[in-house]
Design a protein around this nucleic acid. Structure first.
Lengths: 127, 127
DNA sequence: CATCTGTTATATTATCGATATAACAGATGG
DNA sequence: CCATCTGTTATATCGATAATATAACAGATG
């Protein structure tokens, strides 16, 4: 899977890495059990420091997206705790929807956006 | 409107301020034309530095939630640019929904959460 | 004219993101 | 057995950011 970093973004590099890998899992470009590139390998490919990749992997591990195997490195292993996930997503969604309401976006608008995104992500599967 | 700051949060204080005020606008606890507390007043109330509040107001101004009147201070004035808002929200939603999919939350789950939040925000209006 | 508004300038402290160099422990394959 | 790969840890440095503090300025109010 291609990983793209926007160096002019305000978003931290390690955070962009986390997001892209989560996106990759959601679109099945990374699958359960698959090994991620090694910290040194990925750092080299992107042209960043090893520790930046290591931080991303560490965060992904703590958030339950990968497990680390001494032999194979970081391996995709999604911890599915729906209750906990729902809480975390609800919290972020509340902030996002507050802004949406201020901008006069209706709940129908949001439903449409959600459907569109789910469709987009689903389509990546069928190639 | 009561403004609560979590000092143990990793989220910056000025960012929490922005979010709470946007939340206040979404729930009509702040209404168009209403003046926010002065930077010094609010800083005193919360027990933080004036410049932290000033930064929050500056960000809210740049994002089109308030305008500043020399006489009255920061006044709620929401700039409704639906196209721009849609883009910004879509981007954040894509990251959020990627995580949701990883955790096995269906689009129906998300629709339910969205409806719940819209209902919650709407109810504040009817008091 | 005292008092309120936001705004600006400067300085300091602490934290964080990213980089760099280096080393360690465990596993692998020739 | 040893070179090589894995993540991990330990320091150190540099720059940017968050928050604080003190101070001053310009415009409006009563």
């Amino acid at each position: 899977m291609l990983i793209q970093i926007d160096f002019s973004s305000e978003e931290a590099i390690y955070q962009q890495l986390c997001n892209q890998i989560i996106l990759g899992i959601a679109t099945s470009q990374f699958t359960e059990g698959q090994a991620l590139p090694s910290v040194r390998q990925l750092a080299d490919d992107i042209g960043i420091n090893m520790h930046t990749v290591n931080k991303a992997y560490t965060v992904l591990k703590q958030e339950g997206f990968v497990k680390v195997d001494r032999r194979r490195g970081a391996v995709i292993s999604v911890d599915v705790d729906r209750i906990r996930a729902q809480k975390s997503i609800d919290k972020e969604l509340r902030i996002l929807l507050a802004e949406a309401i201020c901008r006069n976006l209706t709940r129908q608008d949001i439903h449409a956006m959600v459907d569109r995104i789910y469709d987009d992500y689903g389509e990546v599967n069928e190639r």
